[in-house]
Amino acid sequence: MAGKRAWLWGGVLGLSIAVSVLISLRIGPAGLETADVWRAVWGRLTGAGGVPDWEVAVVWDLRLPRVGMALLVGASLAVAGAAYQGVLRNPLADPFILGVSSGAALAAVAGMLFGGRAGLYGVWGIPLLAFAGGLAGLAAVLRLGGMAGGMRNETLLLAGVVVQSFLGAVLTVLMLASAERLPGVMMWLMGSLANRDPALAAGVLPCFLVSLALLVAWARELNVMTLGEDQAAYLGVDVGKRKWKILVAASLAASASVAVSGIIGFVGLVVPHIVRLLAGPDHRILLPLSALAGGLFLLWADNAARAAVPGQEIPIGAVTAFLGAPFFAYLLRRSGRTR
């Protein structure tokens, strides 16, 4: 029965994404009508003439890659969030809270600022550097929060705030050191998909796929681990190793996506919760559905970011925070009540 529900929601989400992608292709300041978008899509596919170059370029080279990046980043963050929440048994865990995003952003920025000399540019350099940074951020938060099983919400949050503030400060100073890049600070701290090189996504996609595949393969263990580390061990899970593998796999997706988009909070928090409400907590279903729902969520967050204010973009992190922070407050309140 759970399986049927999963397929149902998978279908609903898949369809919503398909429709949303089409709608998103229509959104943008260049003001293309639906017919123009179709003509442009058709134009590149068939090589048919008579379509203005700029329309094809806007649809295929600007909007489509951006839609793709939104789906990819959203999926990565949501999958990572679901895995973190499961393995840490903490409904408030997400890449942002756990310092993964900040660590990854810092490493990515450092890589871009100093990478020229070290020859770290390229499709793989920045995502992998971000991965290392994300793991470092995560390690710091978990260390500070005291890894002792079943870390309490409050401890984790405090540790997260401390590490994030610190990394954010380093990031700001680093970016101010080269004053020309001042506007870029905002992009990294609040996240943005504007003017990102789609080539970066080429490095992120494999990271996401590897991460998702591993996590889905370990979904049963994840389910059992939500009972607590000891209980999971009693049920035959090699907790010590498995836990770290899950954390690392989740961080791979989360960090790599940060390399494209900067720090976008709350996606990894909100999406798995909603998916759990809709389709249940079984990670075999939760992880793939979170990927779909995360992509959908971020796609619309990005649409809002670019369409909310005519002629200007707001950082996508501001949009997700605007929706996610109240949700977080609600979760915090609820977890406080049951304690």
Partner: peptide, 28 residues
């Protein structure tokens, strides 16, 4: 059509189809 210094959307640039593009950040 923008007022003051503003970020512009790439779509608008492409649509406006400029014949000359001038960059000022070559020094960094």
């Amino acid at each position: 059509d923008l007022e003051g210094w503003k970020p512009i959307n790439a779509e608008k640039v492409i649509r406006s189809n400029p014949q000359v593009i001038v960059l000022t950040y070559g020094y960094y």
